[in-house]
Amino acid sequence: MKTLVVGASGSTGKLLVMQLLAAGQEVKIIVRPTSNIPDTWNNNDNITIIRINDISNIPVNEMSGYLKDCQSVASCLGHNLSFKGMYGKPKLLITDTVQIICETIIKNAPEKPLRFVLMNTAGNNNKNLNEPVSFGQKIVIGLFRLLLPPHSDNENAADYLRVKIGQKNRFIEWVTVRPDNLINAQIVTEYSLHASPTRSALFNPGQTSRINVAHFMSQLIINDTIYNKWSGQMPVIYNNITEIK
């Protein structure tokens, strides 16, 4: 199986690529010309590196060539936590990229649906499940939508898959992975998966190590049993322990 990974130069994206390579998978990555990636990737026959200034503006015809031999797509895209990264262009980096990729997949009309695995956030509700949200959290999330463009971008990207692509698309199947408060860790540890949050992402957040997110995303790509269990859903992932040293 060959997977296109966008956001591969980020903290979680790098770990996902490593997980896929360790499983013997072929990987294509789209990164900026200035992105920092491991030197070993440049000499790895299982990686194809594509360098582009703005992935959210790739024409569908160009993206078609990158996707034509892939069976899955994973997005670990996110905004840099700087003023420019949060408020500069492109404000809808994740949403625009998801849309371009989906439009391209549909245009390519593959014989078998491609798997699209999107990294998102536990602060975004799955509206298909009418997940309960406290009044206080509704107020704060409303402020986030107004003041923090990356939050709206995450919501819009997930909604594009949930609403626009939906559950019965002939060419695209999807899973949106929702980690809680992200932390760094050296190894994969036990983690739990839930259809909906079991705690408030704002007022009582859990922890999720980036390497656990990468592991789960890789399993969704290569493990049919795990993928079939969560296809068309927005699972929330938590570490099973409260602290990793």
Rank of each mutant, 00 (worst) to 15 (best):
66 Y>S: 00
125 N>E: 12
73 V>Y: 08
114 L>E: 00
106 I>Q: 14
81 L>W: 11
95 T>K: 14
82 S>F: 02
99 Q>D: 13
77 L>K: 07
68 K>N: 07
63 M>Q: 05
69 D>E: 14
99 Q>C: 13
106 I>A: 07
67 L>Y: 06
104 T>D: 03
121 T>E: 09
68 K>Q: 08
107 K>F: 03
107 K>R: 07
71 Q>P: 01
112 K>F: 08
120 N>T: 14
88 G>V: 02
65 G>E: 14
75 S>L: 11
105 I>Y: 06
125 N>D: 09
112 K>N: 11
92 L>I: 06
108 N>K: 10
79 H>Y: 03
113 P>T: 02
123 G>R: 05
80 N>Q: 15
79 H>V: 02
112 K>R: 08
86 M>E: 13
63 M>C: 08
88 G>W: 02
105 I>R: 06
116 F>I: 04
118 L>A: 07
73 V>E: 04
84 K>E: 07
102 C>I: 11
100 I>S: 15
79 H>D: 01
73 V>W: 05
121 T>D: 12
67 L>A: 05
72 S>T: 01
98 V>Q: 09
97 T>A: 07
102 C>P: 10
120 N>H: 10
119 M>N: 09
115 R>A: 00
118 L>E: 07
97 T>M: 08
111 E>F: 08
63 M>D: 04
95 T>D: 09
80 N>L: 13
117 V>I: 15
105 I>K: 06
66 Y>G: 01
124 N>K: 10
113 P>S: 02
65 G>A: 06
125 N>T: 13
79 H>W: 03
87 Y>D: 00
107 K>C: 00
88 G>N: 01
90 P>K: 12
105 I>S: 05
63 M>P: 07
101 I>R: 06
80 N>Y: 13
121 T>A: 15
94 I>R: 03
85 G>T: 03
100 I>H: 13
83 F>V: 13
64 S>I: 06
124 N>E: 11
114 L>V: 01
64 S>W: 06
75 S>F: 10
93 L>H: 01
113 P>V: 02
114 L>Y: 01
102 C>K: 08
71 Q>R: 08
72 S>E: 00
95 T>L: 10
76 C>M: 10
116 F>K: 03
79 H>L: 02
83 F>G: 00
87 Y>I: 01
123 G>P: 06
81 L>H: 09
123 G>D: 07
84 K>A: 09
113 P>A: 00
93 L>T: 01
94 I>F: 03
65 G>R: 11
98 V>L: 11
65 G>W: 08
109 A>T: 12
91 K>F: 05
120 N>D: 14
113 P>G: 02
94 I>W: 03
78 G>V: 04
109 A>N: 12
82 S>L: 01
